[in-house]
Simulated scan of single mutants.
Amino acid sequence: MSRKTGKPSYVRQAEQAQKRRVPLAATIAGIVVAALAAGLVGFLIGRPDATTRAIDDLKAQEAQRDRDQIKSLTDVARSSQEKLTTLLDQYDVAVASGKPADATAIADWQRTVKELVAAHADSPSGTTATNVARGGFRSAVGDFQVALDLYAAAVTGPADRQPTLVEIAGRARTAAATAWSVAAAQLDQINVDAGFGHQHVYLQTKQGSGAFTADGEEEGHTGG
C-alpha cells in the first residue's frame, strides 16, 4: 500500500541542504581554478619568451660591438691626428711662403697620407652614428691626399701657373681639414654616448682652418 503522506520534514531539509551545497562547492572550485589560471597567465605574460630573450641578447651584443668599434676608431683617429698635425704645419709654411717645398719633403707628405688612407680604409658595419664618423675620417684623409697631389703637381708645373695652382691646393687642404673636424665632432659625441667621455681628435695646426675645434670639455668627461 502506497504512502499517502509526503516525505518527513527532516528528509526534505536534508535534500534542500544538499542542493545548496552542490552549487556552493562548484562556485568555490571555479573561483580557485580561475585564480590559479590567472596566476599562471600572469606568470607567463611577465616572463620573457625565448624570442624576446634572443632579441635582448642580440641588442646587448650589438651595443658591445659598437663600443669596441668606437674605441678602435678613436685610436686610429688620434694616431692620424698626430701625424697630420706635424705634416700640415710643414705644408702650411710651404704654401704661405710661396717657395716650393723640396721634392723629398713632398714625397714624405704623400707617403704619410697614403698610409693614413690605408689606415682608414677598413669599413666594418656598425651603427649609423659610428658609420658617419668613420666615413667622415675616410673622406677627409682622401681629401688631404688630393690636396697634396695638387700641390706636388703645382710646384712641378709651369712657373706662370704655379701661384694659382698652389692657392687651389691650399683651399683643398682647408676643405679637407673642415671635413676632418666634422668627423671629429661626430666621434666626440659617440664617445660620450658610449660612456667613454669626450675624446678630442681635432686638428690643432699653427695656421688653423676655421673648422670645428674642441668644445672645451676635458678629455674623458662624460658630461654634456
Rank of each mutant, 00 (worst) to 15 (best):
K4R: 13
G6Q: 04
K7C: 04
Y10Q: 11
Y10T: 08
Q13V: 14
A14P: 09
A17I: 03
K19V: 01
A25N: 10
A25D: 12
A25T: 05
T27Y: 15
G30Y: 03
I31C: 03
A38H: 10
G39H: 03
G39N: 02
V41M: 05
G42Y: 09
P48Q: 04
D49P: 01
T52W: 12
R53Y: 07
A54R: 04
I55E: 15
A63V: 13
Q64H: 05
D68Q: 10
Q69L: 13
K71E: 13
K71R: 14
A77S: 11
S80F: 02
S80N: 12
Q81V: 03
K83V: 10
K83D: 14
K83L: 07
L87E: 08
Y91I: 06
Y91W: 13
V95K: 02
V95F: 13
A96Y: 09
A96S: 11
A96F: 08
S97V: 08
S97T: 10
P100Y: 06
P100T: 00
A101W: 06
A101V: 06
A101T: 08
D102L: 06
T104R: 13
T104M: 12
T104L: 15
I106A: 11
A107D: 12
W109H: 08
W109M: 09
R111L: 05
E115G: 08
E115Y: 11
L116E: 13
L116Y: 12
V117S: 02
G126F: 02
N131V: 08
N131P: 03
N131M: 09
N131G: 07
A133E: 06
G136K: 01
F137Q: 03
R138Y: 04
S139W: 00
S139G: 01
A140W: 03
G142H: 02
F144A: 03
F144K: 02
V146M: 07
L150K: 11
L150H: 10
A153M: 11
V155I: 09
T156P: 06
T156R: 10
P158A: 14
A159T: 02
A159I: 08
D160S: 06
R161A: 14
R161V: 00
Q162D: 02
P163T: 01
P163F: 02
E167Q: 14
E167F: 14
R171P: 03
A175C: 01
A177E: 05
A177H: 04
T178N: 07
A179L: 07
W180M: 00
V182Q: 01
V182L: 07
A183T: 05
Q189N: 04
Q189M: 12
I190G: 04
V192N: 12
V192Y: 01
D193M: 09
G195V: 00
T205W: 10
T205L: 06
G210L: 11
G210N: 04
A211S: 09
A211E: 13
T213K: 13
T213I: 10
G216W: 08
E218A: 15
G220A: 08
G220E: 08
G223P: 05
